Lab assay of single mutants.
Amino acid sequence: QIFVKTLTGKTITLEVEPSDTIENVKAKIQDKEGIPPDQQRLIFAGKQLEDGRTLSDYNIQKESTLHLVL
């Protein structure tokens, strides 16, 4: 699982696999929060994550925290 922290300070927990794409993660966030993926920007280690890449591409491991910017 990974954590996604929103600007409001809320933390969302997501069940993911390293092979999941960023697009996939955004879809999971939409399921939980109702935020359309095209409004979501995910930041990890100061980098904006691209939809077509996977979590493992960015070396995002379990218990990692991503930041969600709208």
Rank of each mutant, 00 (worst) to 15 (best):
T11E: 06
D31C: 14
T54G: 03
E15D: 14
R41C: 15
S64K: 04
L66W: 02
P18W: 13
A45M: 15
P37M: 15
P37K: 14
T21V: 05
G52T: 10
T54R: 12
I29P: 00
V25E: 00
S19N: 13
E63Y: 14
A27G: 09
E17W: 10
N24F: 15
E15S: 13
I22T: 04
A27E: 10
K26A: 02
S19D: 12
T54P: 05
V25Y: 02
P36W: 06
E63Q: 12
K62Q: 14
E50Q: 09
N24L: 13
I60D: 01
D57V: 04
E17S: 12
Q48V: 15
L14V: 09
I2L: 08
T8E: 13
R41Y: 11
L66S: 01
D51I: 05
I22L: 05
L49V: 04
S56G: 10
E17Y: 11
T21M: 07
I2M: 05
A45Q: 15
P18V: 10
V16G: 03
L14D: 01
I22A: 02
T21W: 05
Y58V: 02
P18M: 13
D38G: 12
L7N: 14
L14E: 00
D51L: 06
R53I: 06
E63W: 13
T21N: 04
Q61M: 10
P37G: 08
P18E: 09
K5E: 07
I60W: 03
E23K: 11
I29L: 07
L70M: 11
I12S: 02
T6K: 05
G34S: 06
L14M: 04
P37R: 14
L7P: 13
T65G: 03
L49Q: 00
L68C: 03
T65P: 03
Q48E: 14
F44N: 02
Y58D: 02
Q39T: 08
E17L: 11
K5I: 15
G46Q: 05
K5D: 04
I35P: 04
D51R: 04
I35V: 08
D38I: 10
L68Y: 02
Q61P: 13
D51A: 07
T11P: 03
F3G: 02
K32W: 06
Q1F: 15
N24V: 14
S19F: 11
N59S: 09
A45S: 09
I35D: 02
T21D: 03
E33S: 11
T8R: 09
N24I: 14
T8G: 11
L55Y: 01
I29R: 00
N24M: 15
T8Y: 12
I35H: 09
F3C: 05
G34D: 05
S56L: 11
G52R: 09
D57Q: 07
L7D: 11
L70P: 09
L55T: 02
Q40W: 06
T6H: 06
G9K: 04
D31P: 02
I60K: 01
I12A: 02
P36A: 10
Q1H: 14
K28D: 02
